[in-house]
Structure formats: structure tokens, C-alpha cells
Amino acid sequence: MTAAALELDHVDAAYGPFRALFDVSLRVDPGEAVALVGAHGAGKSTIARVASGLLPPTSGTIHVDGTDLTGRAPFHYARAGIAHAPEGRSTFASLTVTENLELAFRAARPKRDVAADMKEAFRLFPKLGERHDQLAGTLSGGEQRMLALARVLVLRPRLLVADELSLGLAPIVTAEVYRVLGQVRDTGTALLVVEQHLDHALAIADRVVVLQQGEVTFDGPPDRLGDLSSTVLLPDGSPSRAT
């Protein structure tokens, strides 16, 4: 059996006194697309943060590609091939588009030809090419999301952790972002997609993991999710379709 791209084993996590994850075990195989769904506050973003090393777990272990990285600094995760596009604004507002990209490209692979990477990034997202000299803080929300994605996608990571990509985006932009995600999966990158928008998540995923109040309550293929999908989204169990 090959090593998992990412494996969380019995992970607990907390923000100060507030516990957010309870004994979560999760595995993403190379090339696999996993959707992580759940209501607000269920702990989805916490899992994303644990997966990229931003939040060290209080107990349990994290293996990336078979190597134990528990408690290491996040840049070790990045260098091991975990790319994390965090929720919300996740670009350096004080740097230009080009500088944002350059930072990631030169940190990841010092020997690589940055110019070629840059060209690839602007091919994936032509909009960014038009604005390459602009400060990232002046981009629109969708463009910032594209920049965050371009930064990680060009490097062909082993695993992309995408947190709430559709949040606050116009439907047409969301569609564009998911089109690129599909391309990424087809090139062999594993995906861990955190999403409230069920339709998008289910369309792209090989497997669905449902979180409720910090615990995994379902882990299986999307078609087995069945009617559960209408009941998992709110902590109190009231039915809700994400819009």
C-alpha cells in the first residue's frame, strides 16, 4: 500500500481553551479528491489548518506522504507538497501580483525557472496577467482567490487543501474556480475541498467526509451520502440546503 498524501490520526485540536476537533481521523490518498462538508463551526477550517501545519494538534499525529510532521512549522508542510489556500483573503496585500507569485515559486523550488512558472500562472488565470503589477490588496475578491490558487497550483502540489473557495464569489467566478480545480485533479494532485456549497463539492469529489461539531460522522462515496445531505449542515439537525 502506498503512503497517503495526508493522514490525520486521532487528532484533537483547540484554540486556547476552546476545543474544535475531537478524535478526527482522515486519510487522503494520492490523486484522490475528498470533500469535507459540514455546518458553520463544525471544524472544517480547523481540519484544513491542521492539515497544513498552521494549527498544531493537541494530540494525535499527522503524516504527509508517510513522514511524521506533527508539530513541525507550516513551511515544512508546504515543502512536503501540501498547498493550502486558506479561507478569505489569503494574499499579501502589500505585495504586487508578481511578487506574491514569485515568493511562492522561489521558496518552493529554488532551482526552478521562475519565469516559466509565472507564464504558467498567467496562462491558468489570464486576468492575473493583466494585473501583474497591481498590489494584491487592490484586487477584487475573485481575483484574490485566483491569485491564491495560482500561487499553489503552478507548483503541482501533492495535495491541495482548498478552504471555502466559493465563499463570497459570484456564481460565474465560482464556476471558473471549480473548472480549474477539475484540471488540477486531472493532473494528479490530490484534493481536500472544504465547502458549504454541497453541489460543487459533491460534483468534484471521490469521497465525502461529513463533520458535525468537531467529529467525523460520515466518511464514504458521495452516492452513499443519500438523504443525509439535507440533515448534516446545521448542528441542530435542522434541514438546510446551502445556497
Partner: peptide, 10 residues
């Protein structure tokens, strides 16, 4: 933190 996500040892 964001710099670390880009692989920079901050």
C-alpha cells in the same frame, strides 16, 4: 503564517 504556507521559514 501566510508566508509559511508559501514555504518560507518565517
Amino acid at each position: 503564517r501566510l508566508a509559511e504556507l508559501s514555504g518560507v521559514d518565517s
